[in-house]
Design a protein around this nucleic acid. Structure first.
Lengths: 194, 194
DNA sequence: CGACTATGTTTACAGTGATAACATGGCAAG
DNA sequence: CTTGCCATGTTATCACTGTAAACATAGTCG
């Protein structure tokens, strides 16, 4: 949720040569544009135009388009982690964990379709965007769920099944292959045996 | 698997004004290019160039780029359906059905990453590419699996869980978030309770 | 044969990501 | 205070894209 930690006055600086915090402004505009359309349709020039800056100014802050998308991914990951934290806080401990996390996962995807898809697309410039707070939380939450006296290998399989299920449901709904109905999410995620 | 049902000699016609079957050639070249890179990187001009035809010739056979991609989707769907049919033929009837279909699904995705992603992306020009032989077969196979005396609603939920799981696993592996290991596929898909 | 039509071509335009060379202005050292 | 450095902007340019319009060719059918 953190928005502007840069202490620069964004208003009434239309005439300034130096923007103040162009990097943050570009990211913000990119996120805005990502709410309106897919990541493929996101053009550097349009972002720069909307921010009120020349197209090539972007390259002072990002080596290329992929790097800007990568920055957007990082923001998305923070938000996903926040959503997980909130969901976990509300959930009763124990078996509820998976339901809560799973619902949060799918809902996040539906609420931020382009951003979510971008975050999961991986070939964002080839970088595997290594550690991810969101994925770590998901893994921990699922591990807590399958806590019984099963073997480590079996836990891993269950964990992967769980992630696959929520990820697949999110993708199918995002792509319109399954209606994005909240009741359906609940029925699929709740009481899944795995 | 069907390749050339057009009975036109593709060879030694380098000088012809009319191509013979340009539409098929464009699709074929598109599929080839899709094996080498993602669908976003697929350009009309490059396809036309490789086929040896001017860029705008494409528009005699497809209204726009999205339409060509749509045609590629149709081919992909046929191939997926073929893969399903082969898997079902090999599988013993009954509970094996889901394992066989699930493995075929994920393997198809891994074998044709860009094509699979394209097929599932839906916003291919806005058309929801309505009926799909591949999806129909998947649905029927899964329905056969969850055949017990459970309620219709419960069957639907299980069916959706199954599809979500294999779809999610395929996507996670495609995006490099889970190693694309055949043994992992087997462990996840087999003996899933759902 | 002659016209029609399907299927090509050339030309043109607006938009894109990216590079190179140049301009500005804030800040720190002399 | 002045000087110069350098981060951050700018303009100009290039190769590429999808697409539209106008023109050319050739196979087909009256």
């Amino acid at each position: 949720m953190a928005r502007n930690d840069n202490s620069v006055n964004i208003e009434n600086q239309g005439e300034r040569y130096h923007h103040g915090d162009l990097r943050a402004a570009l990211i913000e505009e990119g996120l805005k544009r990502l709410q309106a359309g897919p990541a493929e349709a996101l053009s550097l020039r349009e972002i720069a135009r909307n921010v009120g800056v020349s197209a090539t100014a972007v390259y002072r802050h990002f080596p290329d388009r992929a790097a800007l998308l990568g920055a957007l991914c990082l923001v998305g990951d923070e938000r996903l982690a926040d959503a997980f934290a909130a969901a976990m806080a509300r959930a009763k401990p124990g078996l509820d964990a998976f339901s809560a996390m799973g619902r949060a996962y799918v809902r996040f995807a539906l609420a931020n379709p382009s951003l979510f898809r971008l975050m999961m697309s991986a070939q964002v410039g080839g970088l595997d965007h290594g550690r991810s707070r969101g994925r770590d939380m998901l893994a921990r939450g699922i591990a807590e769920m399958s806590g019984g006296r099963t073997s480590k290998a079996m836990q891993d399989v269950r964990q992967l099944r769980a992630w696959s299920m929520v990820h697949g449901l999110a993708m199918l709904m995002l792509d319109g292959l399954v209606p994005a109905d909240d009741a359906i999410i609940a029925r699929v995620v709740d009481a899944a045996v795995l």
